[in-house]
């Protein structure tokens, strides 16, 4: 069945759409009451809130889909502040012409990822607009942060170590390959990072800051940390993990993994004394199996890259759109 304007009318077709797809997959006691708003029980600790919109095309790609992405992106943003993810809300903007099976598949992915992340989907909305089968999702996440915990990009000090949880560029490369019809085995790294973050926190790794390495890539995110904490960051090219298929694709298209988006990788700035332990812990988890220490915090105000042939250069934030070269 294709979605039509009637599904956005607020009448019978809308209720059926919600009942048969979203309510079915997202069901939980808080959501099932279907009231105008959900009243949450009181929570201990500080409250973390984040929101994000997802407009990826194609809707389905190797390693994930827009539904999985919409949960992972928001849950990971909560985790990056040391929050325990609790609840997610979602808003759908659905173009006419979308197949209901497509929505069902997206909702199922969202439910699976939410379960994996330990969050409940507690509120939602659907709107239908004229179009050609596109789907856009906004999710808002709520989490709690223990009162004594303070993880923030403003906290880094000279001497701290910089850790990267895995290979760069997989999501970006998978999406580009899909769009360009290039056949390869690159999969999006789209995943929730609970396991990787939890293991660090439970073992008392002194984490100063965390950021997930999404749009803008590692270079942009580290520049933001350097500015926020008023420090320099020196990273070593040779230590930054990039898988060989991604490296090859970058070579062909003239892309730089430092500026490519990921959906299941994060950077953590940690106390230097904890670095060996942190790597060992992270490598024991699935999302952190390729984790590496990639650099250190120094005094100054720049992001510096020590290149594999021993040169040094300044790395800036992403300028423009990060597009492939043309010759």
């Amino acid at each position: 069945m294709k979605i039509t304007a009637a599904h956005g009318s607020g009448g019978k077709s809308t209720s059926e759409l919600i009942e048969n797809i979203f309510a079915k997959h997202f069901s939980n006691p808080l959501l099932d009451s279907m009231e105008d708003s959900t009243v949450l029980p009181s929570m201990d600790g500080k409250i973390a809130i984040t929101t994000d919109s997802f407009v990826v095309t194609p809707l389905f790609f190797k390693g994930g889909d827009i539904g999985k992405l919409s949960i992972c992106g928001t849950v990971n943003d909560l985790l990056m502040r040391g929050a325990i993810p609790r609840y997610v809300t979602c808003g759908f903007i659905i173009e006419t012409g979308t197949e209901s099976e497509t929505l069902d598949q997206i909702a199922r992915s969202m439910a699976e990822s939410a379960k994996q992340a330990g969050v409940l989907i507690i509120a939602g909305d659907t709107k239908v607009i004229n179009g050609n089968g596109g789907v856009y999702i906004n999710t808002t996440g709520v989490g709690t942060v223990p009162n004594e915990r303070d993880i923030s990009i403003y906290n880094c000090k000279a001497g701290d170590a910089v850790l990267l949880s895995g290979t760069l560029g997989d999501h970006h490369a998978a999406i580009l390959s899909e769009r360009m019809g290039i056949k390869n085995d690159i999969q999006s790294d789209c995943t929730v990072l609970n396991e990787a973050v939890d293991i660090l926190l439970k073992n008392n790794i002194r984490i100063k800051a965390m950021r997930d390495v999404t749009r803008g890539g590692l270079a942009t995110i580290l520049n933001e940390i350097a500015v926020a904490s008023n420090v320099s960051i020196e990273i070593e090219e040779g230590q930054i993990p990039v898988s060989s298929p991604v490296k090859s694709l970058c070579g062909i298209l003239g892309l730089d993994p430092l500026y490519m988006g990921n959906e299941g990788k994060f950077v953590a700035v940690i106390d230097v004394q904890d670095k060996e332990k942190a790597i060992e812990l992270l490598q024991s988890t699935e999302p952190g199996k390729n984790a590496a220490i990639i650099g250190k915090i120094k005094t100054g105000d720049k992001l510096l890259l020590k290149t594999s042939i021993g040169g040094t250069r300044i790395v800036h934030v992403l300028q423009g759109e990060g597009l492939p070269r043309i010759c």
Binding site: I309, T312, R325, C327
Partner: peptide, 15 residues
């Protein structure tokens, strides 16, 4: 142009 880019990216001028 690709050489220009390699020279910049690998920090060759610093060497």
């Amino acid at each position: 142009g690709t050489h220009t880019s390699v020279i910049a990216k690998s920090g060759i001028k610093s060497l």
